[in-house]
């Protein structure tokens, strides 16, 4: 079954604060602690694509407006 939604996180826009990760009800986001962006910061990413429910909690919590949320039509 395709996911209800998915998110795009701007790697360069993310500062790695982790507020999106802890507030994701589906636990689909993770902080990439093995890589950094050009600012030297870890960034969060969509680790489990199939469980996103497009609730947008992550985007609402993201201080830096780095997350775009998509929802399946219909």
């Amino acid at each position: 079954m395709p996911a209800k939604g998915y998110v795009e996180i701007s790697m360069e826009g993310c500062k790695g604060c982790g507020l999106c990760v802890i507030h994701c009800p589906s636990k689909c986001l993770e902080l990439n602690t093995s890589d950094t962006n050009s600012y030297g910061l870890h960034y969060s990413y969509l680790a489990k694509e199939d469980v996103c429910i497009a609730c947008a909690n992550c985007a609402i919590m993201c201080p830096d407006a780095a997350i775009t949320v998509y929802k399946k039509v219909g």
Partner: peptide, 29 residues
Amino acid sequence: KEGYEVVYKRPKTLLDKRMHYCPGCFHAT
């Protein structure tokens, strides 16, 4: 992706510029 619509995105009124605030700061929020 096909079959999806945007439900949340950065507002156009917020300039496409990296804010200087520390990670997690509510100023940015």
